[in-house]
Nucleic acid binder design. Structure first.
Length: 872
RNA sequence: GCCCGAGUGGCGGAAUUGGUAGACGCAGGGGAUUCAAAAUCCCCCGCCGAAAGGCUUGCCGGUUCGAGUCCGGCCUCGGGUACCA
């Protein structure tokens, strides 16, 4: 393929090697060459380097689905930029890779394709590793592991036993989605409109005894420590705070009337004790012991049954219409003589929060107001807004939720809300029937899964000894291979020889726990394991102390709450069980959340999704199918199989090379926002990289330009000035995760270089800097041009260039001149020019004099070196 | 439902703490080169208007000499919602 430009052969052909004339930058060939060079040099293996600070950069490890997708490319390209940048700026870098290998899809594949989940998973890992390697990532592959390796999950089992001993793991009853046809527990994802996704049967809620981690004991600690996470996105910190959901309020006991024996009191929790005088009903969860007891009444039973319908997800519960059942029981208002409030069973009070019982004050709560309207309950306004008339204020259509003073509230009248809360809590505490209490939304972490493809919980149930931890010398408890997937229940339940084992305590025959662990457990400590991936203990003190914490963690914002919170809990639990030193509190010092990779969507005339491969440009504009039918272009959305708008990274790397893919995916959008993949964009990236190569290739070895020494000196000086400005921008942009801006600065510098009439020797200096600046983003091309421009050794191990501050200063500055806030002129002045001198210059300007018409300005705003505004 | 975020030309986006809106790239238009094309190089490019000028950062309102940026109220799209990972 001869594509070398004729212009170049005309002007300097006699200086070029013949093969240079014939060649073009061939990414695939050259990328393989440099990847081998890196492998041989071992530059990416993590070792403590004396005198260098350590830097641990980690991207969220992938689930081995079998194919890498553009989201992976983006994630790992970003992490690689950071790892490479940190490496050349004098850090000893740890940048590992592993596989989040347990999970549902492997079991689904087992059922659909009859392949064993383990076999399926390990094959996928091999495939994905082979797709990932051509990206040229600076990963220490010697530390790779999968969470389904017994060497990994065995250590996890060992920690589970330690957590049992410390009381951090315990058993209690909890609700699951139950598919009565498949006799299987369903994940929330497997429930569609209240029905099992395969069987179509109405899902039931079922109670099972399950294992939990006591994360709620750490609620306050996890909440307070968010303040330390200054290098996390503010939005993630806020989401975590809200998730933990600390609220203080009052817990107190109502006296009941006409209630069954044992329920002489009803304990409620409220965050608005100030509104007690406006209460018009009490409500308990359908799971509340009182509601359960009343189920002997068929009407109550039917109502509760109705409430228990549907999936267990919070979204489903909250979106369901609020309903109630009047039990006929009443509670006595503690401060209003003779006032009794009806007690309802409802579907919106959750047993898992507070006491599972509340009182409702319709005037100051949206949900309570809707409920009161529906069931004809009274509405008493007890908070008067600051601008309202305390004697006459009443709420209208909407509840009043703002600040104000108490009215219609006996001894609270006239108090501000916060003072009223304090006062009423004091009153309850005095009488001993209630107390101020802090409540958290955060619930304990249920880790039991009734599935095969997960880490077995290392426990044996003995009739005499109860739940007994497996002996550590028997770990790992390995998943049996000979299992059958018939779509019913957990295969481990049916595996007699695996299940029936002697009790570790008394030796009598007992039953092995068949629940496996939530895959979030696997991903809650893998980053610690990377510090000593082959150790015979979960961690090795020396390695953990050197490498932890993760300095920079990068991944999708979809993990903003659960995965990150569980990991934060785990480092604390691992400390309590002796697996992490005291210094390790937070797992991730800095966090970056990346956006998704999107692509346009296409549909044919019948509304069927079309893949980008199936459409082509139509002459005269628009798109058509291969058959020439018209195509409807839809919005750009996250790449997904269901919408067929997927571009396979492997195809892109094959046709354009990894550098082009990396350059493009980092170029257009800020990393924390979604990026749209476009064909024209990837082609532009490819064109640019070709241009860089051509530029270096055609310049190196040229004789000095003719022309005067003075003009050459000036050209050289200008080039170096641009070079230092670029070093400065790229450095700042990489440090601040503005990779798109780094790319823009590199585009600009390449254009400058292409136009520059500086000496080839000066250009060679600039090319070497260009190579160094491009290295984190397009490492293969960087090595190639580094070599062409006479760089020593590998660019991957050459120190990052430093901008000379003297080269960055400008001595003049352009001041925009506004009249009444609209730009009318601009003046170039010496930097730091005095205010009155600027004023004098500005008042002489034509547009300013016109606007003033001989009068004095009302005001003259001068922001030195920034802007001038003349107010007329 | 609840929590969090995003919205700027034809498109992706840029804009230190409120200070020239549209850097850089794509698409488009024009030119050079070529027998011709591809490739490459150069120039133009927010909208309306003949021009003067006016308008413009999802919508409505506010604060300010000055608002993409701050405040209040909406709209649309996206993420999470505890068993998808």
């Amino acid at each position: 393929m001869l594509t070398f430009s004729m212009k170049n052969t005309h002007t300097n052909g006699h200086h070029l090697q013949p093969e240079k004339i014939m060649s073009r930058y061939n990414p695939v060939e050259i990328e393989t060459k440099w990847q081998s060079a890196w492998d041989e040099s071992g530059v990416f293996e993590a070792h403590p380097r004396p005198g260098c600070p350590k830097y641990y950069v980690l991207e969220m490890f992938p689930y081995p689905s079998g194919r890498i997708h553009m989201g992976h490319v983006r994630n790992y390209a970003m992490g690689d930029v950071v790892a490479r940048y940190k490496s050349v700026t004098g850090h000893s870098v740890l940048h590992p890779m592993g596989w989040d290998a347990f999970g549902l899809p492997a079991e689904n594949a087992a059922m659909e394709k009859g392949v064993h989940p383990g076999e399926w998973t390990y094959q996928n890992i091999d495939d994905m590793r082979a797709q990932l390697k051509p990206l040229g990532l600076s990963i220490d592959w010697s530390r790779e592991f999968a969470t389904c390796d017994p060497e990994y999950y065995g250590q996890q089992q060992s920690m589970f036993i330690d957590m049992m001993e410390k009381g951090l793991a315990y058993r209690r009853s909890a609700t699951v989605n139950w598919d009565p046809v498949e006799e299987t527990v369903l994940a929330n994802e497997q429930v569609e409109n209240g029905r099992g996704w395969r069987s179509g049967a109405l899902v039931e809620r079922r109670e099972l005894t399950q294992w939990f981690f006591r994360i709620s004991d750490f609620a306050e600690e996890l909440l307070e420590s968010i303040d330390e996470l200054v290098d996390w996105p503010e939005k993630v910190r806020l989401m975590q705070r809200n998730w933990i959901g600390r609220s203080s309020g009052l817990q107190f006991r109502f006296r009941t009337v006409d209630a069954p024996v044992g329920f002489e009191h009803l304990e409620v929790f409220t965050t608005r004790p100030d509104t007690l005088f406006g209460a018009s009903f009490a409500a308990v969860s359908f799971d509340h012991p009182l509601a359960r007891l009343l189920e002997s009444d068929p009407e109550v039973a039917a109502f509760n049954e109705e409430c228990r319908r549907g999936a267990v997800s919070e979204e489903d519960i909250e979106k369901a219409e609020k309903t109630g059942f009047d039990t006929g029981i009443r509670v006595v208002h503690p401060f209003l003589d003779g006032v009794e409030l009806p007690v309802f069973i409802t579907n919106f009070v959750l047993m898992g929060y507070g006491t599972g019982a509340i009182f409702g004050c319709p005037a100051h709560d949206q949900r309570d107001l809707e409920f009161a309207r529906k069931y004809g309950l009274g509405v008493v306004t007890v908070v008067c807004p600051p601008d309202g008339d305390p004697a006459a204020y009443e709420i209208g259509e909407e509840p009043y939720l703002g600040p104000g003073r108490m009215i219609n509230s006996g001894f609270l009248n006239g108090l501000e809300i916060e003072d009223a809360k304090a006062e009423i809590i004091r009153k309850f505490e005095e009488s001993g029937s209630g107390e101020g209490k802090v409540m958290y939304r955060l619930r304990d972490w249920g880790v039991s899964r009734q599935r095969y493809w997960g880490c077995p919980i290392p426990v044996i149930h003995c009739e005499d000894c109860g739940a007994v931890a497996e002996k550590k010398e028997n770990l790992p408890v390995i998943l049996p291979n000979d299992v059958r997937f018939d779509g019913r229940g957990n295969p481990l339940e049916k595996h007699a020889s695996w299940r029936n084992v002697p009790c570790p305590a008394c030796g009598r025959m007992a039953r092995r726990e068949t629940d496996t662990m939530d895959t979030f457990v696997d991903s809650s400590w893998y980053f610690v394991r990377f510090t000593a991936p082959r150790a015979r203990t979960p961690t090795v003190r020396e390695d953990v102390e050197y490498w932890m914490n993760v300095d920079q963690y990068i991944g999708g914002v979809e993990h903003a709450i659960l995965h990150l919170l569980y990991s934060r809990f785990f480092t604390r639990a691992m400390h309590l069980t002796g697996h992490l030193p005291k210094s390790a509190g937070e797992p991730f010092t800095a966090l970056f959340t990346q956006g998704m990779v999107c692509h346009e969507t296409y549909k044919d005339g019948e509304g069927r999704w079309l893949s980008p491969e199936d459409v082509r440009p139509r002459t005269g504009g628009g798109l058509e199918t291969r058959e020439g039918d018209s195509v409807t272009v839809g919005p750009s959305v996250k790449m997904s199989k269901s919408k067929k708008n997927v571009i396979d990274p492997e195809d892109i790397i094959e046709s354009f090379g990894a550098d082009t893919a990396r350059w493009f995916i980092l170029s257009d959008s800020p990393p924390d926002r979604d990026v749209e993949w476009t064909t024209s964009g990837i082609e532009a990236a490819s064109r640019h990289l070709q241009r860089v190569w051509r530029l270096v290739n055609s310049t190196v070895g040229q004789p000095d330009s003719t022309g005067s020494q003075a003009s050459r000196d000036e050209e050289n000086a200008n080039l170096f000035k641009a070079m230092h400005r670029t070093i400065d921008s790229v450095t700042n942009d990489l440090e601040s995760f503005s990779f798109n801006k780094s790319v823009a600065a590199l585009y600009e510098f390449t254009s400058t270089l292409a136009r520059s009439a500086a000496d080839p020797a000066s250009k060679a200096v600039a090319f070497r800097v260009l190579a160094q600046l491009m290295q984190p983003i397009t490492p293969h091309l960087a090595e190639e041009i580094w070599e062409m421009a006479g760089g020593e050794g590998l660019v991957v191990s050459s120190p990052w260039p430093v901008a000379d501050p003297d080269m960055l200063v400008e001595d003049t500055v352009v001041l925009p001149v506004q009249v009444n806030g609209k730009r009318r002129a601009e003046i170039r002045v010496a930097k730091g020019l005095e205010r009155d001198e600027v004023e004098a210059l500005v008042l002489e300007l034509g547009p300013v004099r016109n606007a003033l018409g001989g009068r004095n300005p009302k005001r003259l705003v001068v922001v030195p070196d920034r802007i001038v505004n003349v107010v007329v």
